[in-house]
């Protein structure tokens, strides 16, 4: 029975000692220790959160870069396409200009040729006429060197006139 009867002395000293221990530890040990542990845990959590955010930021930046790259590529393609179109247009324009110019020059040449031909033909005609006249004159002179023949011809011609 003695074993399970609390003794007043030990109860008193335990109460006093435990309360002193409690207040000393609470003020000078538990408070700073718990604070330090909590703070460290918070800082670790913060660091993890920040790492996550950085990762997200990274992926966002990568995506952005990719988008930018894609856009740049598209722009380049567009510019190239435009340049090609422009080139074709220029070439086509040049071609039509050349064709019209050629046609015009051909036309001019043809007109010139025709003119020259006409001139040459007239010239030839004139010369042929002069030659013919010369020949005819010479033939006639030869023919009519003899007076009889001139009289015969005149008689013939007069005959024809009579008939009419």
């Amino acid at each position: 029975m003695e074993l399970v009867t609390p003794e007043i002395g030990l109860v008193f000293w335990t109460t006093v000692s435990f309360l002193i221990l409690f207040f000393l530890l609470a003020k000078f040990a538990w408070k700073p220790i718990m604070k330090a542990i909590d703070e460290r845990e918070r800082s670790i959590e913060d660091a993890l959160l920040k790492a996550d955010a950085a990762k997200e930021e990274m992926s966002r930046l990568t995506n952005e870069n990719e988008a930018l790259l894609k856009q740049a590529r598209a722009e380049r393609d567009q510019i190239l396409a435009e340049a090609r179109k422009l080139k074709e247009q220029i070439v086509a324009e040049a071609r039509t200009t050349a064709q019209t110019e050629g046609a015009r020059m051909l036309e001019l040449a043809r007109i010139e040729i025709n003119n020259q031909k006409a001139l040459a033909l007239t010239d030839v005609k004139n010369q042929v006429a002069a030659l013919s006249l010369e020949i005819a004159e010479k033939v006639l002179r030869k023919e009519f060197e003899d007076g009889s023949k001139q009289d015969a011809l005149v008689a013939d011609l007069l005959k024809e006139v009579k008939l009419k």
Binding site: L21, F28, A29, P32, I33
Partner: peptide, 11 residues
């Protein structure tokens, strides 16, 4: 007290 004061000061 010795143990926990030293631990607290370590923190």
């Amino acid at each position: 007290l010795v143990i926990f004061f030293s631990v607290a000061s370590a923190y």
